[in-house]
Amino acid sequence: MAITADQKELMSFGRRYHFGIKAACLIEILKRADRLIFMDADHYPYADPSKGFRQISPTRSFMRKCEGQHRLYPVLSGKGVKVGHYALTGHEPMWQSGILGVHRANAGALTEAYSAMLAVRELTKTDAPEQFCIGVALSQGGLALSRHHLPVTDYNTRGKKAFASPRVLQFFKMYGNAPIPEQIRRAGWYRLWRTPADLWRQRDRWSL
């Protein structure tokens, strides 16, 4: 699904919150799909993730993991910011949105989350309103939210990215124009996880 510059401008609240683009795109995709499993670009399945669709229903969603209460978010208490009819206190748990499974029936909940993001961004001065508001929206009104159970791993730390990113770029340089089934077959030969020897070579890094 191509996104134009004008659409990005609109989805990001006039460039005031970049991650609004992600949330707005989830809503658009659910107009075309019954259920959606989303992963950030630095996550990847190491086996068939399609069984995850069984975990998704009109009342059940999943996200990557629950991170607990964010220390800066109680600033929202009493400010009148709402996700739907629910007034945020800032004591709600933060769910990480690197992985998300959601049903089309909850597109309205995502829209309510999206509508609150800019106000949360301006009050907290953080990058997390997208995942915070989505987590709240998918937990209200009889909806259940849980941690995912997908065969998915990631390369989302500095050390992992330093190892994996050149390999990902090399892959798409070689196979980016190949049919999707061929890309899937070729991707099975690529290793993005690090061996002990790879970790030893990165021993001078302050963050792995």
Rank of each mutant, 00 (worst) to 15 (best):
I180M: 11
T4Y: 00
T195Y: 02
D34A: 08
S77G: 11
A162F: 01
W200I: 06
A116F: 09
Y46K: 07
A137H: 07
H85R: 13
W95S: 12
F38N: 09
G84A: 06
A24R: 14
H148I: 04
F172E: 04
S139H: 09
S97F: 03
F38A: 11
N106F: 02
M94G: 03
R203E: 08
L143C: 02
D204I: 06
K79E: 14
R54V: 03
G68Q: 09
G142H: 02
G68S: 09
L26D: 06
G78K: 08
A47W: 04
S61A: 15
S97C: 15
A137F: 03
W95L: 12
Q96D: 13
E130W: 02
W189G: 15
L145S: 04
R203I: 06
S115E: 14
R54D: 15
W95D: 10
G90L: 07
L150E: 09
R35I: 01
A178I: 00
H43L: 13
L30F: 07
W189E: 15
R191A: 11
R32T: 10
T124K: 02
R167I: 12
G141Q: 08
P129L: 12
C66M: 14
F172T: 11
R201T: 12
P74W: 00
G20K: 07
M1V: 11
E112S: 12
A113R: 10
R64I: 10
